[in-house]
Nucleic acid binder design. Sequence first.
DNA 1: TACATTTTTAATCATTTGATTAATTCTCTT
DNA 2: AAGAGAATTAATCAAATGATTAAAAATGTA
Lengths: 217, 217
Amino acid sequence: MAKKIKTPDDLSTEDKIKEAARTIFMQKGYSATRTRDIAEAADINLALLNYYFRSKEKLFDIIMLEIMQQFVAGLKESFQDEKTSLLEKVQTVAEKYTTLFMKIPDLPLFVLGEIQARPEEMAQKMNLKEVVLNTSFFRQIQEATPEGIHPINCLLNLLSLIVFPFAASPLIKIAGQIPPEAFQILMQQRLQMIPLWFDAMINTKVPGHESNHQNKR
Amino acid sequence: MAKKIKTPDDLSTEDKIKEAARTIFMQKGYSATRTRDIAEAADINLALLNYYFRSKEKLFDIIMLEIMQQFVAGLKESFQDEKTSLLEKVQTVAEKYTTLFMKIPDLPLFVLGEIQARPEEMAQKMNLKEVVLNTSFFRQIQEATPEGIHPINCLLNLLSLIVFPFAASPLIKIAGQIPPEAFQILMQQRLQMIPLWFDAMINTKVPGHESNHQNKR
DNA sequence: TACATTTTTAATCATTTGATTAATTCTCTT
DNA sequence: AAGAGAATTAATCAAATGATTAAAAATGTA
């Protein structure tokens, strides 16, 4: 009975600010969030925001860096693992991101928006070359894509299937009249299918190319 | 020689404002754009913006409505056409949106962002049920999707393949070190493949379901 | 031309918003 | 308990920003 129910107060003020800021920044974007909104959500005095983080922009940078790192965290190792197959890796990415986006629905659109706003900075923060291009994963994709198709397109297909539904989730829920729980089920269903769909796409013949790869599982 | 080269001045002030506003709103979003930026880009006095449109918000609403209508324009008829096959319609959507997004790269992310910000309003502005759900197109999708899969997931696959690459284009260009012209070629390549990929996905077997549909072309 | 209406401009207002300051309270060490 | 440093608060500042106003210029009309 004396156990703490939630964790609103036992956070340090610094962390309360960061959590509130993360939520609001992701929801409304940098420009649309007011420092006063953050202060209110964190239940702290406005001046404390500047006391701990100097400025709105500095606070944003810190949070953004953490988000971007979270975004690529855990992928690097599995992507560099030479022992797992392509489809196993596909399964891993799909699972990781589906889980992540279920917890934080605003994440995909927010990240895409920030990348659009400041491409170079964000690409650097995500360290993409390291995480994607120079990995066993990308090499396996290159091998598996049929002639006549750019490997980037295969990678794009995978990311599309994983990320887009979350970026478009409000649309889906309203247009398809899908309640939130049903949406989660839909995404779980996709999770099973994505490796199969990916495999199917990799094995579709390209018109005008006689000798297409056959995917070796 | 006396022919007009461009059309910066021969527009009415009202249209100059609208064009500038459309560009900047799409680039930076509602909150991040300043009415002064719009006025400067349109090369008009700041007060004229309010003279013609009353307020920033009213101007935004007008532009947003036009964008949303443009977004679904031309699809309604082809989606309701009972005579064309599913794959023919898929080809049509893919072509239409690829062309549109090549011209206006900021469009997809902007629309998705606005939908996230105000789902009900936007869904209403796009009139989605009319345009998607109650159409021959969606019925054909329903018929074609295998048992065990929600038809919405098939629709999602299609939209994902079409829309996501544009939403992620800055990422692609930087991460993949793809110059802008090469990006356009990539998208053209996708355009050819999307109907085939869609077909392949529709025909992949669902684990645990013996009697899956075979797509009847 | 003379007049009325519409369009444009410069100046200004009022509010919002990020940030700072100076005083107060809290916390920890001795 | 006393004092020092850290944390917190209320009040305020300065700049940015959406909007308005009153005068001037342009345009159309009789």
